[in-house]
Amino acid sequence: MKKLAMAKTSLLLLLSACLLAGCDKRFILLHPKGPVAQKEYDLIVLSAILCAIVVIPVLALLVFIVIRYRDKPGNKATYRPEWNESKWLEVFWWGIPIVIIGVLGFYTAKTTFALVKPPVTNVKPVTIQVTSLDWKWLFQYPDQKIATVNYAEIPAGVPVQFVLTSDAPMNSFWVPQLGGQEYTMPGMAMRLWLQADKPGTYYGSGANFTGKGFAHMKFKVVAKPQSEFLAWTKQVKKTAPALTKEGYEKLARQGLAEKTAFSSYPAGLFEEIVDKNGGKYMSHEMKHGHGHMHQHDEN
């Protein structure tokens, strides 16, 4: 029994050591590259520590009790078979979790409300409309009027407002190093704020199962300095082909796709996708994300 408990404690310690030290760059969640991911990371650490405050002493207590009160001849530890209540102990162990949950709950609520706002407000944000298809990602840049498939480029240090929908079963848009995911849902346009602090290439993937080609729905988000980003959009505008209505329909069919860029797309394509999948019946608020997010539309 002792061995069991010890094995578990050491495993746990190993795990938490890994978590706290972030021993390896490959643990991308533990190496946030933007303010949103940073806030989420802080909460991960806080919640892990708060949980450890309870879990580790309890494990130690378990080991102690099991060793001390084993039923073996000559065990001199107290044996009180009728001792079954203690008001103070009960108050103590109802109290401890309540306090911990209280603290954690406070920070959770605070961050939850913070994350629906743009990470910084003194820079003009970029908007990218994301559509998940079977099984590829379409990114549209309404300000630049260009589109890409299976990769996105963003300016570093600028908040990016991703507007998410789906023209296929629900997926989830996730770029772990920049921040958490959000569902792409048919008939809705949800907002997700992300920002990359430094230029770099970040791993992204679909996180909600959508069938056969789901495992291949990976993409890269490339953050560049503002000037290079602008140069890139100009380059796409000049050299890439246009995305036509038929082109979109072909793209939307089930199958995988290569990385591509388009110099333009049919006007109102994104809104049309949202509307035809049920968006036209949704209240304005539902369709364009919840009220709290909506307030910042005009930014």
């Binding site: 969640l29 991911a37 806030k39 989420e40 990371y41 909460l43 991960i44 919640s47 954690l104 920070y107 959770t108 961050t111 939850t112 994350l115 772990p176 921040g179 958490g180 995911q181 959000e182």
Partner: peptide, 8 residues
Amino acid sequence: AVAPADYQ
């Protein structure tokens, strides 16, 4: 259960 962390 920490909602923002759950996004990750």
